[in-house]
Write a protein that binds this DNA or RNA. Sequence first.
DNA 1: TCGATACCTGAGTATGTTAGTCAACATAAT
DNA 2: ATTATGTTGACTAACATACTCAGGTATCGA
Lengths: 136, 136
Amino acid sequence: MKVSSRGEYALRALIALGLQEGNVSTIADISGQTLVPAAYLEQILLQLKMLGYLKSRRGKKGGYMLAKAPDQIVIGEVIRSLEGPLAPMGCVSITSYEACPLEGTCLLKPFWALIRDSIAQLLDQTTLAHLIERKL
Amino acid sequence: MKVSSRGEYALRALIALGLQEGNVSTIADISGQTLVPAAYLEQILLQLKMLGYLKSRRGKKGGYMLAKAPDQIVIGEVIRSLEGPLAPMGCVSITSYEACPLEGTCLLKPFWALIRDSIAQLLDQTTLAHLIERKL
DNA sequence: TCGATACCTGAGTATGTTAGTCAACATAAT
DNA sequence: ATTATGTTGACTAACATACTCAGGTATCGA
C-alpha cells in the first residue's frame, strides 16, 4: 500500500511552494527545502506544471510558483495524476476500472471497495491548504 | 496504493479453503476456483503454510486446509506478511518505521499517519470469517 | 511393494517500475 | 554577451512482479 517517492516528492514541492505565497522559487531552492535531488525534482516539477498545478518563468530570476490557490489543489487528484488510481484493485477502481473474471461471486470485491472508499474520501477531502495550515 | 496479485491470490485461496470447512483441497482444485495459475498458487500456498495459516497433507488424497478457524485469521496480518507494512510511507509505519530527515517539520507526516490509521483499522478488524459470511 | 498422486524445493526468466542521472538546448534578465 | 535559469529527451542501475519449470519427496491404494 505504499506511496512512491515521486508522489511524496511532488507533495513536498507543492507544500514548499505553497509556503512561498506568490514568490517564485528555483529548483535549487525547492531541492534544498525538500531534500529531493535537483535533477529528479526537475522532472516532477515539469509534470506538475503540465498538470496545471504550477506556473514557471524561464531565465534569470526564473523559477516555479503555484498556478492555483492552495485550497483548490486536492491531494487525491495530485496522487491520482502521479501514481494512478487510489483503489487497491482494478475491479473497484472508479477512475480506471478493470474487469475480473470472478466479478460476480467474488467475496473480496466488496472489501476492496470499502478500502477504496476510505482512502479516496480522505485524499479527496484534503487540499494543499489543509496540509499547510495543519488542519486535518 | 495497489495490492499485488500475490496478496489478492492469497486471500482468494484462503476464502476458497474457508468455504470447504475442514475438507482438504488440492492445488488444482483451488486453482480452478480462484483462477490463479497452479504453479504460482503452489508458491503462495507454501508461504501461507509457513506463516501458519494452512496445513497440508502430502501424497495421494493430499491437499491443503486451514490451520486456524476463519475468525482467527486477520486480513491485515495476512497482507502485512505478504506485502510488507500497510503504512503508505516508512515514516508512519508501526511495524517497520524508517526515519526521515524532514521528520520534525514535515507537514505530510500527520497526513500519512491518518491514512495509515484508516487502512490499518479496516484491515485489522476484518477476519476471513467476515469475508466468507459477507459481514463487513 | 509399486506406482500414481499429491505436495516440496529451488532455480530461472520476462517484463515492468522506480528512482534516479546526464547532456544539450532555450529563454530571460543584467 | 553572459549567465542563470527552466526544458527536453535519452539513458541506466537496481529492484519487484508474476510467473514457469525441472526435479525431489511423501503418502495412499491396489
